[in-house]
Simulated scan of single mutants.
Amino acid sequence: MDGQVSARARGGDEHAFAQLVAPYRRELHLHCYRMLGSLTDAEDVLQETLLAAWRGLAGFEGRSSVRAWLYRIATNRCLNAIRAGNRRPVTDPVPPFPLPEPSRRAEITWLRPYPDSLLAGIADTSPGPAARYEATEAIGLAFVAALQRMPPRQAAALVLRDVLGFATDEVAGMLDTTGTAVKGALQRARTALAAQTRPRPDRDTERELGRRFAAAFVAADIDGLVELLTDDAWLSMPPAPHEYHGVAAVRTFLETAFENRGDHVMHLVPTSVNGQVAYASYLGDPDAETAGPAGLFVLAMAGDRVHAVTRFHLDPTDPRFDLPARLTTRGRKPTRAPRGRSFRSGSTEM
């Protein structure tokens, strides 16, 4: 950064400060999201970070880069937020329909999707030679969820070292600890992460699996959906804690969901969040010309099958997701339902 800009910022020039931090805002926002698992919480902590940086700029001695200094502030603000417990839902959500008994109840109910539109300009940023994870891998829902299960400082060490590529001594300075402690935290975090994530197939395979999943889902083709799942597939629906593990449990959930669809027609609109194939769902009456939002499905693939399905509540008024508040259904091509089923079919956009 131009030294003159830095000098003006130190002198209290707010415009110069904005110039100073502008190159890092998007990646800092993503960093806060990885640490907190929530888009809204990430935005709040990012604002706290920038305010703290503005107030503390006079004390910045330049012994590290501006980027490293900002990451130190952001990381510690995230750790403070986690300790305060501000990211967790206060009340239990109301399910969209009576749910079958889950396989288990998840603790990480605050996880939210991250729009791919916010990733623009971040993936091309060189993370440094120490980084171990590709940009797409390090934004996936499974990766972010795994971070939420780790002790916070352990997660912070993993992100700073293995995702962002900061050197061990830099990470130690950011976390006010020793290099030995950072190495120990990294070893434990890497082991935990390897146990909770799966290798992804190539992008073309993911898209094809997504198309097949969407066609079967709008047609309420349970057998077709089950054929696409791995044996250990699971389905979750944050902020509801319900999780369904294994093909039998997922099938039970799908049967209940499709029965509760009744005469309504389902439509799916393709999108992408967390670098993954996703579909925004809309539900409407058979003769209506529009349909309302019914959730956001994010698919995780393993090999040539779907390993995980995450259904989020969808707020279509959120401009970050670039989705319609109501979907115009007039003229959309319907998908035929399987013979013998009473479920209403709908349409997909491919």
Rank of each mutant, 00 (worst) to 15 (best):
R8P: 00
L36V: 09
F17H: 13
S6L: 12
G210S: 14
S117L: 15
L228F: 13
E107A: 07
I222Y: 00
H242V: 04
S236Q: 01
T230K: 05
D287F: 07
R83H: 12
R211K: 13
R305P: 09
R105Q: 11
R198F: 15
P239Q: 08
S65A: 07
D263R: 05
A302I: 01
F343N: 04
G128V: 08
S236W: 03
T310H: 05
F312G: 03
A308S: 10
A216G: 02
A156S: 10
F253L: 13
V144M: 13
V159Y: 03
R105E: 12
D124Q: 12
E227M: 01
L268C: 03
P115D: 15
L254F: 15
G37N: 07
H267E: 00
R211V: 06
H245Q: 06
A106E: 15
R311W: 14
D231I: 11
Y24Q: 12
P129V: 15
Q276F: 00
D322N: 12
L314I: 15
L327I: 01
G210R: 07
M237N: 02
A138W: 13
F297N: 00
A257H: 04
V250Y: 04
D41K: 04
F97G: 08
G246Q: 08
Q4P: 03
T125A: 11
G179E: 05
S117C: 09
P338L: 14
R10P: 00
S126V: 13
G303S: 07
R251M: 03
L147H: 04
T328S: 08
T348R: 03
D221K: 00
R251G: 03
A215S: 10
A172Q: 14
P286C: 07
S103I: 15
R132N: 05
R25I: 11
H313V: 14
D202G: 07
R104M: 07
D223H: 10
P152Y: 12
P115S: 06
M266I: 08
R104Q: 06
A257Q: 10
G173E: 07
L46V: 07
L164N: 05
E48Y: 01
R77S: 09
E259I: 12
S6R: 01
R25L: 13
L70S: 03
R26F: 01
A325H: 10
D169W: 12
G295M: 01
V159M: 10
L36K: 00
L99H: 11
R207S: 02
W234F: 12
N86T: 13
V247I: 12
V226L: 05
